[in-house]
Structures are given as C-alpha cells and as structure tokens.
Design a protein around this nucleic acid. Structure first.
Lengths: 188, 188
DNA sequence: TTTTCAATATACCGAATGGTATATTATAGA
DNA sequence: TCTATAATATACCATTCGGTATATTGAAAA
C-alpha cells in the first residue's frame, strides 16, 4: 500500500474514532510513520485530505445509484433498487459510512459541513428528480416531492445505522421492507 | 438574564453554528462580554458547560416523556403520545434540538460523545421497556424490541429534521402519520 | 552519467487552545 | 459596620494547532 493510501486509511480510522476536529494532522502522520510535509505534499491541507477521503469513497457510488434510479415509471421498483444500492455501498464500506453519517449534521460553517454538503446535494437532486417524475403518474404526490426525498433518505440511513448495531442485516429482504415501509407512508 | 444564563445561551448558539470543537472558550465569553475565569467559576470546565447545557434542556423533558409512555396496553396510543412529546419538545427548543441531533453520532471518545451518551441511554431504556412490554401482547414482536426501539427513535428524529427545513409541521396530524408509518413497519 | 522531479525529513512559525494563580469588586448576613 | 463569600478581572501558563521554508533522498528519463 502506498504512503498516500495509508494516510487516507489512517485518517478515516482516526476521524471515525475521535472525530475530525479532535484529530490533529500530527496524529495522522504518526500513525503512518511519516512526517507532516509528506501529508501536505499529497493533500495540500487538512481540508484537502478531508475532501479527498470523501471523493475516494463516493465517486464509485454515483454510477450504481444512477442506474438504480433509471427504471422510470415503476416507483416501487426504483425505491427498492436505490435502497439496495445504498445497502451495498454501506455494507462494503461500513466504517466509512459510519463516519459519513456522523458528519451529515455538521454545522455549515465547519470544515466537515462544507465538505459533505456537495455530496448531500448530489444525492438529494438525484432522488428528488425521481419523486418529481413520479408525481406525474401519481397525482396525490404532487407538491410533496421535497418532503419525500428527505424522508426516504432518512429512513435508509436509520436502517443502516441500525445495522451497525447488528440489529438488522442489509440484505434484499431488508431493502424490500424498508422501501415498502416508506411507500406506505406515501400512499396512506 | 443572569451571566450564567447568557453563557449557556451563547454557548448553545456557537456550538450549533460552528460546532463544539470549533468553539473556543474565549469566543463564548467574548460573545457575552465577560472574561474566562467567570465561565470557569460557573461551570468548572468546557466539558462542565457542555453537560450543564444538555441537562438544562433535557431535565424538564423526562417527566412528559414518561407520562406519554405510561398508557400500558395500548401500543398505538403510546407511540402517538410519545411522538407528540418529542414533537413538542423539539418545537419549543428547535435550536437546541437541532444541535442535539448533530452530536448524537459523535465519537464515543469525544467530549460531545461522552456527554450525550447517558441521555441517549435514558431514552433508549424508557422506550425499550415499552416494546418489551408490548411483546407480551403481540407475539410477533418478540425478539425485535431492540430493533423497534432504535427504528422508532430514528423515524421521529428524521421527521423532526425534516421539520427544520419547513417540509413538515410538528403537529398532532403529523404525529399520527409518523407513528402510524412506524406501526405499519411492525405488523407487516 | 547527468538531470530532473517526486517524495520525504528537519526544524521551525505564529496563533489559538483549555485552564489557572491571584487580585479586586460587589453583595448579603451578622 | 464588619465579615464572609460570590462574582468578576488581569495576566499568565504549557501545549497543541495547522502550516511551511528548506534541505535531502531516491528513482526515472535524457
């Protein structure tokens, strides 16, 4: 593993266990066994390291997420596939996803808040488009697309958090239940 | 308003807007217009200020929450009342609840993590007792009480977060829908 | 072999951090 | 009025923070 990869790995581990703000740059380079200028050579700043870390994991996720959302016209199937895509992503990078969940509510003015916002926006736009399209078929959804977008993501992440305590497994059956529970909220 | 109250107020505002770790003690006392030893006179440490802040808001909440959970035997009614209790609490202290939500996923080793854990445990025990009791009446719930406890809190907090973006209002109808959506997840 | 550039280390910077020893002021009770 | 105590300020502490100027090493290209 390259020095760059080790820095990313140790940064994630420290950010997750002690928080971004509580993790000094010194602690990260100590964990890898290099000196500070090495880190600054690769990432430019602590914030650059943060951005790189998020991009490294999320970049390969956009494709599968878009694919899952593509089956236009069949909302229940779309929601189930999207739920599955999130479950797969979280299952394969459980530590990363745990840390990612922890920085979602970070203040807008903080480093973590600024770094995570574009990622949240991208997810939001992709899913909101789905609910806006669906509103053309289901009249009673009209005007509620923003609310549904938000709640849908919330239920997915609640379920994933639950899985981290071994309370549920992130398999197909669980995805069916999760998206079904959300659908019930829509059409009731 | 006393100096002590002003310190608590400004601390909440700064913690919420910039995060606990990004808020120096100096910034808080500057916002109030006093000097550092004054803050240390009242709270002993930055961590003491954090604990006091959480206790100040949560202490008056335990009574109503317990009351809402007391109607043993009628699970749907209990869940609706509990949801309403949370909605009321969040509605009356929206800024505080927003900050509280942001520190829930804080690392266990961090100050915020250590401070918020007892509060989470208390909520968890109170609700878990409800689901354990309910399992005696509804056999198909047995063994799932931990999962239900977690998911129920997750859906409540997702809805409250949604309310912060003006996507939904925290009224009785909303509480009925929220608890109903969760009930559907249980008995399906 | 020489040149070039990426990768790493040594040693340092000013600023901010949480916290405190000590002195002063204001207030309330005897 | 005197005393005790709560409340506040001045001035300081060692440590850590993110970041960098500069030098050295190593490897690949010319």
């Amino acid at each position: 593993m390259t020095t760059r990869e080790q820095l990313l790995e140790q940064a994630l581990e420290l950010f997750r266990r002690e928080g971004y703000e509580n993790t000094g740059v010194q602690k990260i380079v100590d964990a890898v066994g290099v000196e500070k200028p090495t880190l600054y050579h690769y990432f430019g700043s602590k914030r650059g390291l943060l951005d790189t870390l998020l991009a490294t994991y999320f970049d390969p996720f956009w494709g599968p997420l878009q694919t899952a959302a593509d089956h236009k016209g069949d909302v229940p199937y779309q929601l189930e596939q999207i739920t599955l895509a999130y479950f797969k992503f979280a299952r394969e990078h459980l530590n990363f996803y745990q840390w990612y969940l922890s920085i979602i509510p970070a203040p807008v003015e903080s480093d973590t808040g600024k770094a995570v916002r574009p990622i949240l926006d991208k997810q939001w736009k992709l899913l909101n488009r789905l609910f806006k399209d669906a509103a053309e078929f289901h009249g009673n959804m009209r005007g509620r697309d923003a609310r549904y977008t938000y709640t849908f993501l919330g239920i997915i992440n609640t379920t994933i958090t639950s899985a981290m305590f071994d309370l549920v497994s992130l398999n197909e059956e669980s995805a069916y239940i999760t998206s079904g529970q959300f659908m019930h909220g829509i059409f009731s």
